[in-house]
């Protein structure tokens, strides 16, 4: 067992964990933050996307041990005082989700995308979300939501 300390949504979380514990399981089972989903478990679908030191990563392919001493942001940490984050609000307004399974990862990937590129074109959004699969929406409304969020944040 090893001791890890990870700042999750601004809060220091420390725990004794097995070195093989994946970050996604650290978040779900140790921190009890269950929004981040496991879809494929093989680095393909992006459902497990969180921000690690501000950039998007697939938390099924990062060890909790690798995140030791670093900062993680999950979708639970986005809303401020009951107000949805602009990306969350835009996903809702533009119907950027149906079943919602991909949504936490999709939202975090979008937040990361907009931090790096606050005014993306539609094509840049499609390429920027290449690592996130959605089985329901056909993507159009997701892309619309990210465009709307970019406008709202401007």
């Amino acid at each position: 067992m090893i001791q890890v300390e990870v700042t999750v949504n601004g809060e220091a979380r420390s725990a004794e964990v097995e070195p093989r514990l994946l970050l996604v399981h650290f978040l779900r089972d140790v921190c009890r933050l269950r929004a981040t989903n496991v879809g494929c478990d093989t680095t393909s679908c992006g459902a497990c996307t969180v921000l690690l030191d501000g950039v998007s990563v697939k938390s099924c392919t990062v060890l909790a041990a690798q995140a030791d001493g670093h900062e993680v942001a999950t979708v639970e940490g986005l809303a401020r005082e009951g107000e949805l984050h602009p990306v969350q609000a835009a996903f809702r307004a533009e119907h950027g989700l149906q079943c919602g399974f991909c949504t936490p990862g999709m939202v975090m990937a979008s937040v990361g995308l907009l931090q790096a590129n606050p005014h993306p074109t539609e094509e840049e959004i499609r390429i920027g979300l290449e690592g996130n699969l959605c089985r329901c929406t056909g993507y159009h409304n997701i892309v619309r939501a990210v465009l709307a969020a970019a406008e709202a944040e401007a």
């Binding site: 680095t43 992006g46 690690l52 697939k58 990062v62 990361g112 995308l113 690592g131």
Partner: peptide
Amino acid sequence: IGDPQVRHR
């Protein structure tokens, strides 16, 4: 390579 998440790691 891969997608943005893969390229970040």
